[in-house]
């Protein structure tokens, strides 16, 4: 649709600008708040321009142990959890989609629908039984406990199934004639041909894993296992004392950074994976 009406342009731009402002303003406040000292943030009005305490605050944040877990440890925990969840989800769903698409076995569709039904059972719904299982397996306060219950993914399986269905059967036949076993075909043809989809999914799943809150909160009791998202919450509830807003905002900033980096660096491949169907 190519139109050139000043009024339409004006309205659509205004809507977009308002939308962007709504998203950007809190981030700006976060940036500003993280660059002032604790005292300034307790006074009204709140500052709208950055202060000069940014580096000082960073030093303080990384040196102090007063906020439960050290920040770099909780960042590392978050990273480990997000990586294990996203990589685990991808490897399990890619192989189950491969089984469902390329092998004819008894009850194939039954299993497919079984997987599909788990979409209705996110961790929040099954949280008590899952906790029970994880506890009995002795996986509380461990990376495995943090990630394994979140790994099975119907969405990813379904998405890979759709991708594989677009790979022509002739390719499978050609590789059979070339002498490739099913697993060779999987690694030599299917995986390389789905790599943009895998990357796109990685971005989504990484952010999903990074942002987990409820589950880590439940199964970690050792402050050394806290994830960064949890630490922010912990800092807000630091007993009797005033919340340290500048530290909280700085932690939030660090918590936002990895997902942002993942999106920025994988954006090109991400968009390609979601839209490109050149097979």
């Amino acid at each position: 649709m190519v139109e050139n009406r000043p009024m339409t342009t004006f309205i659509s731009h205004s809507v977009l600008i308002i939308g962007v402002a709504l998203i950007v303003f809190p981030i700006w406040i976060m940036l500003v708040a993280s660059s002032h000292d604790a005292l300034r943030l307790t006074q009204v009005p709140l500052p709208l321009l950055p202060g000069d305490q940014f580096w000082e605050n960073i030093k303080l944040l990384f040196s102090s142990k007063t906020f439960g877990a050290p920040i770099h440890l909780s960042l590392l925990n978050s990273l480990a959890m997000a990586m294990m969840i996203s990589l685990g989800k991808i490897s399990i769903s890619v192989i189950s989609a491969f089984a469902i698409v390329y092998f004819k076995f008894r009850f194939r569709m039954f299993f497919f629908w079984m997987i599909f039904v788990t979409l209705m059972l996110p961790v929040e719904v099954r949280i008590l039984p899952t906790y029970e299982v994880v506890a009995s397996l002795g996986m509380l306060d461990s990376y495995l406990g943090l990630s394994v219950p979140l790994i099975a993914s119907a969405t990813a399986t379904f998405m890979f199934r759709q991708t594989f269905l677009t790979i022509s059967d002739e390719l499978m036949e050609a590789s059979r004639i070339d002498g490739a076993s099913p697993m060779r075909f999987f690694f030599d043809v299917v995986i390389p041909m789905s790599r943009t989809n895998i990357a796109a999914l990685f971005v989504i799943l990484f952010i999903y894993g990074w942002n987990q809150y409820l589950w880590p909160l439940l199964i970690t009791t050792d402050p050394d296992m806290y994830t960064v998202v949890m630490s922010i919450k912990q800092m807000l509830e630091s007993g009797e004392s005033e919340p340290m807003w500048h530290m909280i905002m700085l932690t939030a900033l660090f918590a936002m950074l990895p997902p942002v980096l993942v999106v920025v660096f994988m954006q090109k491949i991400f968009v390609k994976g979601l839209t490109d169907s050149e097979k």
């Binding site: 022509s168 002739e170 036949e173 050609a174 590789s175 004639i177 043809v189």
Partner: peptide, 14 residues
């Protein structure tokens, strides 16, 4: 001991 040529060529695109 066969080799086959397919209608849509079936070349590995990657």
């Amino acid at each position: 001991g066969i080799a086959m040529v397919f209608q849509n060529y079936a070349l590995y695109p990657h």
